Simulated assay, not measured.
Amino acid sequence: MKAFTLRKTLFAAIATGVLFTGAVQAAGYPAEIENDLVNICKAIKADNPMRLHLAVKRSGLNYRTLDEGLVCNGQNMMTFAATHSAGNSGKFLAARLHSTDRTLTAKR
Rank of each mutant, 00 (worst) to 15 (best):
A3Y: 10
A3L: 12
A3N: 12
T5P: 02
L6D: 11
L6T: 12
T9P: 02
T9V: 14
T9A: 14
A12N: 06
A12Q: 05
A13T: 15
I14Q: 03
I14A: 11
T16Q: 01
G17H: 01
T21L: 10
A23E: 02
V24Q: 07
Q25N: 03
Q25C: 03
A26M: 03
A27V: 06
A27S: 08
Y29A: 13
Y29G: 07
E32C: 01
E34A: 10
N35P: 04
N35C: 07
D36R: 07
D36Y: 07
D36A: 08
D36P: 00
L37M: 15
N39C: 05
I40H: 01
C41F: 06
C41N: 08
K42W: 05
K42P: 04
K45P: 04
A46R: 11
D47K: 06
D47N: 15
P49I: 02
R51H: 09
L52S: 02
L52E: 02
L52P: 00
L54K: 14
L54E: 14
R58Y: 11
S59F: 06
S59W: 05
G60A: 03
L61D: 04
R64W: 10
R64Q: 14
T65S: 13
T65K: 10
T65F: 12
L66Y: 07
L66C: 01
D67Y: 15
E68Q: 15
E68M: 14
E68C: 08
G69V: 13
G69Y: 13
G69E: 14
L70E: 01
V71W: 12
V71N: 13
N73L: 14
N73T: 14
Q75Y: 15
N76S: 09
N76L: 03
N76T: 08
M77Y: 05
M77N: 03
M78G: 06
F80A: 05
F80Q: 04
F80E: 03
A81D: 01
A81N: 00
T83Q: 14
H84I: 05
A86C: 02
N88V: 01
G90D: 00
K91P: 00
F92D: 00
L97P: 06
L97Y: 04
R102D: 09
L104D: 05
T105R: 08
K107A: 09
K107F: 10
R108K: 12
